[in-house]
Design a protein around this nucleic acid. Structure first.
Length: 649
DNA sequence: TACGGCGGCGCG
DNA sequence: AAAGCGCGCCGCCGTA
């Protein structure tokens, strides 16, 4: 019931216990520059729950002597002055959550935010960042937690308040351990970050991971906290209305499938589907599943397969299943999924996870606001449900081909850089250079295609040559993205529906035309072989020891990651910088605009109609100029406004 | 009833 | 599926 080390005794205070001793703590905290905080709360909903107890830990004026104090949350009021202290560093494990808890009782923390989980993620991206694991791995502390069952059985609120009545010593012991451990983890990781020399384009700014943490990740935590707090306003009536026909159609389809199969049948079960298609109907499987841990591969029933079965065997079940999959995804994830997460004012508050993606990207959960269907292909227009409140507008800003620009700039690929400098469409430009097609012809082909499809021009205008032009653009586009992920000829051939030989030719042609890109990918792998790490432009790094594996598939994967991290991770750095700068620009006070979310290369804001135009210009400028110095390729941002995420493009 | 693995699929 | 990077969620299913 404690860390496996000797510790100072846990102290316990409420606003009714020894006031003099408490005021002495208040005074001491005022003078401390680093204080760790942990909260014990009524639950896990960051918008609704509140702290019941809180613990702090700090080093006393006697170096090496620490205090570990647990208090009832009614004592927070006495610390208000400290909370406003801009010069303090507050230490947490999972900072945003505790900051929400404090905010929920009226406390907005100033000062520097230090989240040990984010620190840990910079150094040990493959490890778990749970407090328990950090303590074990970083400090060698282990800890037996017999609270879990209590939390689960009674719920946190009932359990903790009962404990306060029955055994307050045990409560204080448990609660103050986390703040104490977190403080020690912070001190150790801070040293490790200082010692972690990294490789950045801006060595005078980002020399060690300590710089990356305190100059980027730490302010970023607060930006994300604000995004979470804001959430996104949802047009619930729109979702409700969409649900009616979707649910009806889904039921109709499922009933029809069951009728055709002729026995009880669950259309959501890939197992039952597999049995029906490949055992009963004896169809030929198109491909096998991954097989997971057990490695047991079974015939797949995915989209490609259903399409194949519907075509090859004219199977009506497969045909209907295509619609069923589409609709069940829509209803489950996007209609019901979003509606289940609305707060009482109709806003959805997703979580932004700063310590998950190995490349330094963000991830989002509960709900995942980063995989909402794209506006240009979504039949059901889900983004139409993400709206601004009355009197407000959304501003949505997108980096244009961010990763491709960063690749050209990092590789110093002269001809590709020129395409961007000329303001050409990058894929047409690439197609022009790789296949020696005049750029004008590619442009013309696209225009003609558009007009023919719109019925403004006769079909015959779409000549074979124009078709070739469009095909060239498509091929080069797929190669460009694919190579960034380490795609090989086999998959390329399949994706483009060409032979393997043609695919090999395409890749060679592309790489021969862009030798600097080819070299950049090779060098990226070389850097990992040499240093063990892949680096981003600002100096974030990813450890890839499998680069030396003797198993081909393992090593190849590490090589693909090695060539991808510098691009994907640098893009993440750029957007992070932009978000921090937008925050510093004080768009809230200047224009009333709040940041709502990030989708990797896209940001969304909400604010008053009157200030939209002005704010829009400022955001665009900040985003395009978010790096310390200019790259060889300008960063371009397309930005729009509107009442919904659908039309603010 | 809860949890993890898996298949499948949405996004950049 | 294939030598395609990075994520999270839904529903099913077996297990505890």
């Amino acid at each position: 019931m404690a860390w496996n080390i000797s510790m100072p005794d846990a102290e316990w205070y409420t606003s009714e216990t020894d006031r003099r001793a408490l005021m002495q703590i208040v005074q001491e905290v005022k003078e401390k520059s680093v204080v760790a905080i942990d909260t014990e709360t009524t639950g896990r909903n960051y918008m609704r729950d509140i702290p019941l107890y809180w613990s702090i830990s700090y080093e006393t004026d006697m170096p090496g002597r620490f205090r570990r104090i647990c208090m009832r949350s009614d004592t927070m009021q006495f610390f208000r002055e400290s909370f406003k202290d801009e010069k303090k560093e507050w230490v947490f494990a999972n900072a945003k959550y505790d900051m929400h808890m404090l905010y929920n009782v009226g406390i907005e923390l100033k000062g520097t935010i230090c989240d040990t989980q984010v620190m840990h993620a910079l150094l040990y991206e493959e490890e778990s960042h749970s407090l328990e694991n950090m303590a074990r791995q970083v400090l060698g502390w282990t800890w037996k937690d017999d609270f879990k069952t209590g939390f689960k059985k009674e719920g946190p609120k009932a359990f903790l308040t009962r404990l306060e009545q029955e055994d307050v010593g045990r409560l204080a012991e448990y609660a103050s351990n986390d703040a104490y451990g977190t403080l020690f983890i912070r001190n150790k990781l801070k040293k490790e970050l200082e010692e972690a020399i990294t490789w950045s384009l801006y060595p005078e700014l980002y020399d060690t991971l300590h710089d990356v943490f305190y100059k980027i990740e730490s302010p970023f935590t607060r930006v994300l906290w604000k995004c979470e707090r804001n959430g996104f306003f949802i047009d619930e009536e729109y979702l409700k209305a969409a649900d009616v026909p979707v649910t009806a159609e889904l039921q109709r389809i499922e009933r029809e499938i069951v009728k055709m199969v002729g026995r009880p049948f669950n259309t959501n079960s890939s197992m039952q589907l597999r049995q029906y298609f490949f055992e009963e109907k004896k169809y030929r499987p198109l491909k096998l599943t991954k097989g997971g841990k057990t490695g047991k591969k079974e015939p797949s029933t995915d989209f490609d397969t259903l399409e194949f079965l519907a075509g090859e065997y004219r199977d009506p079940v497969a045909e209907l299943m295509l619609k069923q999959r589409d609709l069940s995804k829509l209803k489950g994830t996007y209609i019901d999924g979003i509606r289940d997460h609305l707060d009482q004012w109709g806003r959805v508050h997703y979580k932004f996870n700063q310590d998950v993606a190995r490349t330094g990207r963000l991830s989002s959960s509960e709900i995942n606001c980063q995989n909402i269907p794209r506006p240009d292909t979504d039949k059901y227009r889900i983004r139409r449900a993400f709206i601004s409140e009355p009197g407000n507008n959304l501003i949505v800003a997108d980096y244009e081909q961010l990763e491709m620009r960063l690749l050209a700039a990092a590789a110093l690929e002269k001809d590709m850089i020129d395409i961007f400098l000329k303001g050409w469409d990058i894929h047409m430009g690439n197609a022009s250079l790789v296949f020696n097609i005049p750029y004008e012809d590619l442009e013309k082909a696209k225009k003609v295609d558009k007009k023919v499809k719109a019925g403004e021009l006769p079909e015959a205008e779409m000549t074979d040559y124009y078709r070739k032009c469009l095909e060239a653009r498509q091929h080069v586009k797929t190669i460009g993205f694919g190579l960034n992920y380490g795609m090989k000829e086999k998959k390329l051939a399949n994706d483009l529906r060409i032979t393997k030989e043609e695919a090999i030719n395409l890749i060679n042609r592309y790489m021969d035309r862009y030798p600097a890109v080819k070299k950049f990918y090779a060098d990226s792998i070389g850097v990992v072989r040499q240093t063990g790490y892949a680096y981003t432009l600002l100096g974030r790094r990813r450890f890839l020891p499998e680069i030396n594996s003797t198993q081909n598939d393992i090593r190849w994967r590490a090589e693909r990651q090695a060539s991808n991290v510098p691009i994907q991770g640098t893009a993440a750095d750029v957007v992070k910088m932009a978000m921090i700068l937008c925050d510093q620009a004080n768009l809230v006070d200047e224009y009333g605009f709040h940041m709502l979310l990030q989708v990797h290369d896209e940001l969304a804001f909400e604010g008053p109609e009157e200030t939209t135009e002005e704010c829009l210009k400022v955001i665009k400028e900040i985003m395009e100029d978010s790096l310390p110095t200019k790259l060889a390729v300008p960063l371009e941002v397309s930005i729009g406004k509107g009442k919904s995420w659908m039309d603010a493009k």
